[in-house]
């Protein structure tokens, strides 16, 4: 199975995993290992200067796993741009998972802010991976603005609802000039497989693994689902039909 290539960088795994909400840092590390991922997202937040806290980075082998800083919880293009610049300096890479959120309850993206921030950051030399609506027109605009990949949501962040609009994901992939990563909404392994069967180049998830009763086991399930979905997509599924087509020969049936 071929590797995932984004902006000239090769990833062996098509599964991108988050680093938030795990029961512990050591469970996170074990889940990352079980998922086979080689890219994880991280958030950029103020250092707690009142007390010493354990560093997340002590639990990520950055020689094997690429860090993708996000701009989560940014509600304006300006805040997202500022956060991306800080993430670049903290992580020493120019990649960013760009989020410009438009609504607190759904965490749906703000299209205008997202496009504006994409343009600015691309101009500044960032490799921009925008988290976007499952809207083929928006995805095209983001790619035209220089996004290195587009990351349409399957469902609201953390909802676990699965791919709500499979047809849109398929259209986005058919039209895409850049890799398509389904980001957010996966609840269980079959959701990840569906995303991959639709042709997505990869899947990004956090809560589905971190929030599972056994995050490490779920991480392995997701690894297998992403691989299975990718293989099924490449294999070319049979067309859907309303009526049966017998699998066994109709000749030589006894008693006829």
């Amino acid at each position: 199975m071929s590797d995932l290539v984004i902006a000239g960088r090769t990833f062996r795994s098509r599964l991108i995993v988050g680093t938030g909400k795990y029961p512990s840092h050591s469970i996170m590390r074990a889940a990352h290992e079980a998922s086979g991922t080689d890219m994880v997202t991280v958030a950029v937040r103020r250092v707690d200067i009142s007390r010493k806290t354990e560093s997340l980075l002590d639990y990520i082998d950055t020689s094997k796993i690429f860090l993708l800083p996000n701009t989560a919880a940014c509600y304006t293009a300006d805040d997202a741009i500022r956060t991306a610049r800080l993430g670049r300096e903290a992580g020493m890479s120019n990649w960013v998972k760009l989020e410009v959120i438009g609504d607190e309850k759904t965490l749906f993206p703000d299209n205008e802010g997202l496009l504006e921030a994409t343009r600015v950051l691309v101009k500044e030399g960032f490799i921009v991976l925008p988290y976007t609506n499952d809207d083929p027109v928006m995805c095209r605009k983001l790619a035209d603005a220089g996004a290195a990949a587009v990351m349409p949501l399957g469902a609201p962040i953390g909802s676990g609802l699965g791919i709500q609009n499979p047809n849109n994901i398929r259209i986005i992939k058919e039209q895409a000039t850049v890799p398509v990563i389904v980001d957010a909404g996966v609840g269980t392994a079959s959701d990840a497989a569906v995303a991959m069967e639709l042709g997505a180049d990869g899947v990004l998830m956090n809560t589905a693994i971190a929030g599972a009763q056994d995050p490490v086991a779920m991480a392995r399930a997701m690894k297998l689902a992403v691989e299975a979905g990718r293989l099924a997509f490449l294999a070319g599924r049979i067309p859907k039909k309303s009526y049966a087509t017998a699998s066994s020969p109709l000749q030589g049936v006894i008693g006829t």
Binding site: G18, G20, K21, R46, V47, R88
Partner: peptide
């Protein structure tokens, strides 16, 4: 004061009275 300071400039960047400083790091996120 809203501008990211390059690591190479930490020694030479002087903080003055009234300055606004943000120090951030990576935490868990999706």
């Amino acid at each position: 004061n809203m501008d990211v300071v390059k690591k190479s400039a930490y020694d030479s960047s002087v903080i003055k009275d009234g300055d606004e400083i943000e120090i951030v790091n990576f935490v868990g996120g999706g």
